[in-house]
Design a protein around this nucleic acid. Structure first.
Lengths: 113, 113
DNA sequence: AATATTGTTCGTAATTTTGCAAACAACTAA
DNA sequence: TTAGTTGTTTGCAAAATTACGAACAATATT
């Protein structure tokens, strides 16, 4: 059996994977749920919602920022965070398109092996 | 500043994170896209679509199976894979609910820091 | 100036992820 | 029986992830 090695994944596939990866941890889901239920809030408010140390929360926020899903703004001595609505809409439609494709019918494989 | 440590994330949050994590790699997105465009196919067909070794493809398929998104069935000497439609629908509605919450309006944070 | 608050960064450790080649198992064909 | 096909598993290495406490920077307060 031969696997081709000269193919890339494509920009859309990579973008969706990037969003999904950013969402791939319960703390980050919780952060996004919390932020999307508010207009914005401070780091301390987010930290209180999570069962992990502030250093770790800060790391998760950085990952969400790197993925483009949130923004942060310094308001001394605090830091305000909010959803990045442009990219949020992009992620939303990426996931919608991804799931739109399949019509629900019977599974072709019966067992789960 | 104090972070509470006695909180769990909740079953729904963990489930969404689990689906997202499974989708958090371009190879796995590609596999899911490929499988959702077909009724089912064999391991070799999937492998041809990806720029990585068959051992690695097999690993990614295992992760998708563990997350519940796909199924596999032995049809000697091949293995047939397909989307697990029940869990696919569950994932679909989990993501829909997740993104439904936010109304697109202006960002409360202007800069990205 | 000294102290308190807020949040990030650093240093470190444990675990997980990603990837491949080689070995392997299971079945088919010659 | 021997050889070929198909896909998984194993063993290994490199890199990324997750987590924490301590140190730090920046601002505000006393």
């Amino acid at each position: 059996m031969i696997c081709q090695k000269n193919k890339e994944y494509g920009i859309d596939t990579e973008e969706l994977a990037r969003f999904a990866k950013a969402m791939g941890h319960p703390a980050r889901i919780k952060i996004l749920q919390f932020l999307s239920s508010l207009d914005s809030c401070f780091f301390g408010d987010i930290c209180q919602e999570l069962p992990i140390a502030k250093a770790t929360v800060s790391q998760h926020l950085s990952e969400l920022k790197d993925a483009g899903l949130i923004r942060g703004e310094i308001e001394p001595p605090k830091v305000r965070y909010c959803i990045d609505k442009g990219n949020w809409e992009k992620a939303k439609s990426d996931f919608q398109d991804f799931f739109k494709k399949l019509e629900p019918k019977e599974n072709s494989c019966l067992s789960k092996m």
